[in-house]
Design a protein around this nucleic acid. Sequence first.
DNA 1: CTTGAAAAGAACTGCCT
DNA 2: AGGCAGTTCTTTTCAAG
Lengths: 151, 151
Amino acid sequence: MDLDDTDRALLRALAQDASVSAGALARRFGLSQPTAWRRVRRLEEAGILAGRRLDLDPAALGFGVTVFLGVKLAARGRVSLEDFERAITAIPEVQAVHHVLGRYDYRLRVVARDLSDFERVLRRRIMTLPAVGEIEANVLLSEERRPGPLG
Amino acid sequence: MDLDDTDRALLRALAQDASVSAGALARRFGLSQPTAWRRVRRLEEAGILAGRRLDLDPAALGFGVTVFLGVKLAARGRVSLEDFERAITAIPEVQAVHHVLGRYDYRLRVVARDLSDFERVLRRRIMTLPAVGEIEANVLLSEERRPGPLG
DNA sequence: CTTGAAAAGAACTGCCT
DNA sequence: AGGCAGTTCTTTTCAAG
């Protein structure tokens, strides 16, 4: 699909706050309300706007520690990949599982209440998985998300 | 703030699709529309529900490649951190900048149209930054996001 | 491709249990 | 805290310029 400047402006505005109404977007960008609404729906139908997700604050829920883990499997193969994915997805503290190419096989985003809680998750839940080999950890200090390029 | 099972059920439902209405949530969980709405607003006021974000599909926008970069700065110090953050945030292909502790100083999420486009971003935009030292790259094959623990 | 109207539905408020 | 009834605002569709 082909995006014009207006589509990009709408996406940028919605990327900041997905709860703004079509009417508010229309006023902001000099469109009529149905036009703004149609454009947003077109973006949804094209699959560009895949959905709306909650932005949950883990700290407000009592999870003050976020750690990125790089995991290298000890034995590779189709079976161990599927086993690992099934086992790792069952751990509630794991927020994201990225299958990647490079020095590691998986990158995980893990949250925990504090560092000693993280140690428990790491030692009892993750390091005990049979296929796990080398692990690297990065503790998150601060993060900034950006809209990314829009075509 | 203290969450009960109903709050967690609401958060789980909204985490999957943030566009479901309070009325639909109410019907789903046996509440009245105002009650469901009030609970959601309470979660917003408590800062747990920090906002609603778009789920954009980079592939549908023509960005088929996602790479995670670990970046170690050559010279550390307050000045180089701020310089690096300012410079890296100006690159549109950079979707996320995570300041982390560990083997790397920053973890970046970068999208590109294809691998040769990624090579351009890496060589012309990222490796040319003065403070950059060691870089590690992981190419994303597939990802799965999960709601994460809810208290 | 746009406007304007109208029906449906969602958000929000006050009052009551 | 939860529900009912009502008002206001958005969304969504449709007829027409």
